[in-house]
């Protein structure tokens, strides 16, 4: 009974917050409602006995993806009145697309079939003595390891593609190379100097600056000096 009540509470909040994601005026509030929706979905997974999926949903979506969303939405300066201008004009098209998607969902669910052998499994999805973390691990990393690796490679290629498309080498910016800095050999070393002696008497000379690091002559324009304009 308690599980049933909890289910309706979480499902209700999930749907309400999903509606608020779409309708709230402030984009930051939208993202926060989206996070609330993720949480309630995780709670529904917990009620269904899939604790591993619930935790992964929170870690991946709430802990990483939504943080980036929030990050971007906060940085963007979105004018929402401007964004809502064409609402009346685009609403019918959006409604048609939404209706088609809904119909497709209905068709898919109506034609859903499961083999007769799996009836028992559907009633008791969690086997006795096997945690669902271990069960998922066995399926993903043992039974379907090559498909899993293939999916990982595809994602890697997509990521490299995105980097190649957006990366540009900034020639003009200065870079710090920690390795070079640490391995730099200087002419300076420590010496104990008696009181009252000048460095000239002791034969200590200041090291000359290296030849190539001399500041290059900058081409000045005619009225560069003195600042009289």
């Amino acid at each position: 009974m308690i599980a049933g009540l909890a289910f309706y509470a979480f499902a209700g909040v999930l749907i309400a917050s999903a509606v608020m994601v779409v309708t709230s005026r402030n984009p930051v509030h939208s993202v926060l409602y989206l996070i609330l929706a993720f949480f309630n979905a995780a709670a529904l997974f917990l009620i269904a006995g899939a604790e591993f999926l619930a935790m992964i949903l929170v870690i991946v979506y709430v802990g990483a993806v939504a943080v980036l969303f929030l990050f971007v939405v906060m940085m963007l300066d979105i004018d929402f009145t401007q964004l809502r201008e064409g609402f009346q004009r685009y609403a019918p098209i959006g409604a048609v697309i939404g209706g088609i998607l809904f119909l497709e969902l209905v068709f898919v669910l109506g034609a859903w079939q499961s083999s007769g052998q799996s009836e028992g499994l559907r009633l008791h999805p969690v086997q006795e003595g096997v945690q669902n973390t271990a069960a998922i691990g066995r399926v993903l990393y043992t039974d379907y390891i090559f498909l899993f690796q293939g999916a990982g490679l595809i994602l890697l290629v997509a990521m490299i593609g995105a980097i190649v498309l957006t990366h540009r080498d900034r020639l003009r910016s200065r870079r710090q190379d920690i390795g070079v800095q640490v391995s730099r050999r200087t002419q300076l070393d420590m010496a104990s100097v008696p009181l009252g002696a000048s460095i000239g008497e002791l034969g200590i000379l200041r090291p000359l600056p290296p030849e190539e690091e001399k500041p290059k002559a900058v081409a000045h324009d005619d009225h560069g000096h003195g600042g009289h304009h």
Partner: peptide, 17 residues
């Protein structure tokens, strides 16, 4: 709980909010 480590990791990743 069986996924205690994941729970802790999830909670600590929420701290940023």
């Amino acid at each position: 709980i069986n996924v205690g480590v994941l729970y802790l990791f999830a909670i600590s990743s929420l701290g940023v909010y």
